[in-house]
Design a protein around this nucleic acid. Structure first.
Lengths: 236, 236
DNA sequence: AAGTGGTCTAGACCACTTG
DNA sequence: AAGTGGTCTAGACCACTTT
């Protein structure tokens, strides 16, 4: 399991900022020498990180640390698509930004002990000019020190890209639970829906490396014109 | 891309029945000799098929053709779990079995030209003793020659296991589109729901090798006590 | 031309299962 | 003890990108 140790090391390089998002890694021969293993072993470690979209290889150019930009967010974490299959980057409008105590549900989802402080952020996402998704995000304040509404709003990338660029937290996976509900009054207002409309509700826990929970998000989706799409391939 | 050709060959062995579900493959050295490649190349081909759950490796024992039994169906294709996370194999009750002309939607989903014959099967799935899921399945009659209600009902495995054992069709992946709807009258009756209840509707196209569509299924789920769970990991 | 990743080979040695 | 898959090595050669 030598390659596992190499993988660990590479992850650590990313977490400590030694390898920044977008930057190139040393070439495989150099990495092999640094870790005192063969190139094949380095390749195996990198193979897995590429499969997880943490690293990105380009033949002839090099290997790069993956950035959580729009492209990657869209195909890895954004699963809402128009009925005809068209997928479009949503326009995000901030609706609320507060710091408060975690509810029991949030604390459990985020793996917090007791009632820690959390940032609670609400967004309305527009697709094709219409409000379609109402997001409620909760993240542990201790994990994102110094986050505030101004810097959050001023970000030039995705929310996950901001976690990564500003706090060194890379989201690599997420678990979701989906169900149908009658829309709540506040979501109905934001999504301009009638009271009794059925909506999709998605509870997502997003993780950084080692399955550590980093964000808890509940999304309410108006699925009159959009679907939640899921591809079942390998399911590792 | 030598290993791709090896992979193709192995898939063909499964499709032609030369390698039957549950049976052992020749060992890697023999396969390498048969294909005139190195063991490493065989391993790479097998690696991918193992990741796709088509093959199953057991150290010290051998490599086996994957069977679509309950265990595999549950963790790869059955995504409905109780609110508390418990996952349970559903009790399946046949509700309807007919042969008729494909609708336009079915024909498109199954990649049929014109209005071919399809088997249309409806099931009600029970969890914890309660009816929770109403499935409507459509499969091309030409792809499942000789299928009839008696043999379908008499199967001793999962539906996908039956496709595999009786017709040599292995389901390897599926695409799903999920949305919230008001329950239809017929589903409401089968699931014992009130008229205006919101339910989850899942449209699934299941594929065999090479992304060839083999089954189109619409599931209506009562999500008062159960969720649709999705894990976002690698997303190849 | 030089440097990068991509594929394939050949073989050593280890871990596990079976008889 | 024999046979299987699992890991690691060392190196050849190819495909692609950059200078």
């Amino acid at each position: 399991m030598l390659y596992r140790q190499v993988k660990r090391q590479l992850i650590q390089d990313i977490q400590t900022g030694m390898a920044a998002p977008g930057a190139a890694l040393p070439n495989e021969k150099d990495l092999a020498q640094r870790f005192q293993v063969s190139v094949g072993t380095v390749r195996r470690a990198v193979d897995e990180l590429v499969a997880e979209h943490v690293l990105l290889r380009q033949q002839g150019r090099g290997t790069f640390v993956g950035k959580l930009d729009r492209e990657r967010f869209m195909f890895q974490f954004f699963k809402i698509a128009a009925r005809d299959g068209q997928s479009e980057f949503p326009e995000v409008r901030l609706h609320k930004f507060v710091k408060s105590r975690a509810t029991q549900i949030e604390a459990q989802a985020l793996g917090l002990h007791g009632s820690q402080w959390v940032f609670r952020i609400e967004n309305v996402l527009h697709l094709q000019g219409q409000p379609v998704i109402h997001d409620r995000i909760a993240i542990a304040a201790a994990m994102f020190p110094g986050l505030n509404q101004a810097s959050f709003t001023a970000r030039t990338t995705t929310i996950y890209g901001h976690y990564q660029a500003a706090f060194g937290i890379t989201i690599v996976s997420a678990d979701e639970r989906v169900r149908a509900e009658v829309v709540s009054p506040d979501s109905a207002k934001l999504l301009q829906l009638d009271e009794a409309t059925p909506v999709l509700r998605i509870d997502r826990v997003a993780h950084t490396f080692d399955r550590q929970p980093a964000e808890f998000r509940t999304s309410v989706v108006d699925t009159r014109h959009f679907d939640y799409v899921s591809r079942m391939r390998e399911m590792a």
